[in-house]
């Protein structure tokens, strides 16, 4: 589904990713871990098409097509979802309306008819019930004045609405208390199936107790320095990242 080959990326002329290669298949959950400043979030931003992140060399294929040729909105339309580490507040934009617009953009792209607010409300309500979310998520402005946990829940709600093929969740767990983490993780587990894939970018092993990864990769200094199964996450939790980074 996704093939990253020797990806290099720079921000304002400073190289941050120094050759990342990673292959992800349908139904897989990949955890990307690593110390602060290692390049984890940069990878997420490059994959989602952030204009500030320049790809200096390398290749990314998504379902056989060159992903790097697509703009951020085109990437979304072909089925890539980015869950933000810091979801952006958009005061004055009603959350339900925003979700409907995003949903309709997807439908239009697939050559289908848009849904009206009433029909969409049924779709939205079903997803909100699934994620145990209160009505306030419909009524308020998008992320405006939401707590950290509420923002992350709202990201998962968007994921549920957009039904992406590949989701990249950037530090979705950071700043969440244990209850919020459980709700978010349950939501992700419900949404993840055999036909889609998930990249979990995280600093802590804690999230991986709730969402079981098939593979764990450790990024440091802009490269993947170790890959393994979920047991690698436990080793990291017990020993920190130092044993890996100093060994290299």
């Amino acid at each position: 589904m996704l093939e990253i080959k020797d990806l290099h990326s720079a921000v304002e002329g400073i190289e941050i990713l120094k050759g990342i290669s990673l292959t992800i298949k349908k139904g897989e959950v990949h955890a990307v871990m690593g110390p602060n400043g290692s390049g984890k979030s940069t990878l997420a931003k490059v994959l989602s098409g952030h204009p500030a992140y320049e790809v200096t060399s390398g290749e990314v294929l998504f379902q056989g097509k060159n992903l790097l040729d697509l703009s951020a909105e085109e990437r979304s339309l072909v089925g890539i979802f980015m869950g933000f580490q810091y979801p952006v507040e958009i005061p004055g934009v009603n959350n339900a309306e925003f979700l409907r617009m995003a949903y309709n953009a997807r439908l239009l792209n697939e050559g289908k008819d848009e849904v009206d607010p009433l029909d969409f409300d049924d779709i939205l309500q079903e997803k909100m019930d699934m994620l145990g979310m209160e009505d306030k998520y419909k009524e308020r402005s998008c992320n405006d004045g939401f707590s950290g946990g509420e923002k992350k829940k709202n990201e998962i709600l968007q994921m549920a609405i957009l039904k992406p093929v590949l989701s990249i969740l950037d530090e979705t767990d950071s700043g969440l208390d244990i209850d919020a983490l459980r709700i978010v993780a349950d939501g992700v587990n419900k949404l993840n199936g055999d036909d889609n894939a998930l990249i979990l970018i995280t600093h802590y092993q804690r999230l991986l107790d709730h969402i079981k990864p098939d593979f764990v990769h450790v990024i440091s200094g802009g490269k993947i320095i170790k890959s393994g199964g979920k047991e690698l996450a436990h080793e990291l939790e017990a020993q920190g990242y130092d044993w890996l980074t100093t060994a290299n």
């Binding site: 098409g49 703009s71 909105e73 990437r75 933000f84 952006v88 958009i90 925003f98 995003a102 953009a105």
Partner: peptide, 17 residues
């Protein structure tokens, strides 16, 4: 950028904001 990652075009995103 946030709106664009949700599949909304540049012009729609600008209009919304």
């Amino acid at each position: 950028f946030y709106l664009k990652t949700r599949g909304l075009s540049e012009s729609v995103a600008k209009e919304i904001l």
